[in-house]
């Protein structure tokens, strides 16, 4: 089943610094299938984060189209994009980006404030998400009281809780040691294989990339497929 989730057509992104304009990529065309797990690699500054931002609708392309689930998102208004993000994408960052004043459970509940769910239903979902990342017993802890790996699990639970179509991860293990990184990656793999979540993950780490189904290499604005897993 080749159910297409993302269709990027002639996508370009330029930055103008003073008089000269620098193109990060031009005429980029690609598709991402539902249920895929893609690792994007590439040298620093090649535009990986930029691409994720475009996929997640937190940045706008200079040209071309981004279509997700049949909906063109590159020309949506900020307000519409915010609403779209709340139900369709989950973000996972390298530095977790949890709210320091909220407990783990409250951090996970945050995206649910954007839904019309009852507080009981929200609690149930938070509980499930925390269980998926195996952190149920840390629900009342604050980010500061958690290790890096645990914080990243909370972040994953937060990305997951609103049941989005796609998880966008920007170097999710960049700040973690090997063993912890592997745990996180296994969790992501599980989400992909068991729950069918589409995952796009940017990483510098070839070992991390191995967890993905596809590896793409971004260089000078072009993609080179370097390998795929069974």
């Amino acid at each position: 089943m080749t159910d297409v989730l993302y269709e990027l057509t002639d996508l370009s992104k330029k930055y103008t610094r003073g008089k000269e304009s620098v193109a990060i990529f031009e005429d980029l065309t690609m598709t991402i299938n539902r249920g895929d797990f893609i690792a994007i690699m590439g040298p620093s500054g090649s535009g990986k984060t930029t691409l994720l931002n475009l996929l997640g609708g937190i940045d706008k392309p200079s040209g071309g189209q981004v279509v997700c689930n049949g909906l063109r998102i590159d020309n949506l208004s900020q307000a519409k994009l915010a609403k779209w993000r709340s139900s369709h994408v989950g973000f996972i960052f390298q530095f977790y980006n949890l709210m320091p004043t909220l407990t783990a459970a409250q951090n996970v509940e945050l995206p649910l404030l954007l839904t019309k769910l009852s507080s009981k239903e929200r609690k149930r979902r938070v509980q499930t998400a925390m269980e998926v990342v195996k952190l149920a017993e840390r629900a009342k802890h604050r980010p500061r009281q958690l290790s890096g790996g645990q914080q990243q699990r909370v972040a994953i639970a937060r990305a997951l809780v609103a049941d989005p179509d796609v998880l966008l991860c920007d170097e999710p293990t960049g700040d973690l040691d090997r063993a912890t990184a592997d745990e996180i990656l296994e969790t992501l793999q599980l989400l992909n294989s068991e729950l069918g979540k589409t995952i796009v993950m940017v990483t510098h780490d070839p070992a991390a990339a191995k967890y993905a189904r596809r590896e793409l290499h971004l260089d000078k604005g072009r993609f080179v497929e370097t390998g795929a897993m069974a």
Binding site: A79, W84, R85, S87, F93, N97, P100, L114, A162
Partner: peptide, 15 residues
């Protein structure tokens, strides 16, 4: 600033 950015990423509208 960063937290506000994250909230917006999560889908909290500017208003």
């Amino acid at each position: 600033t960063k937290e506000v950015g994250v909230m917006k990423t999560l889908g909290f509208s500017s208003s």
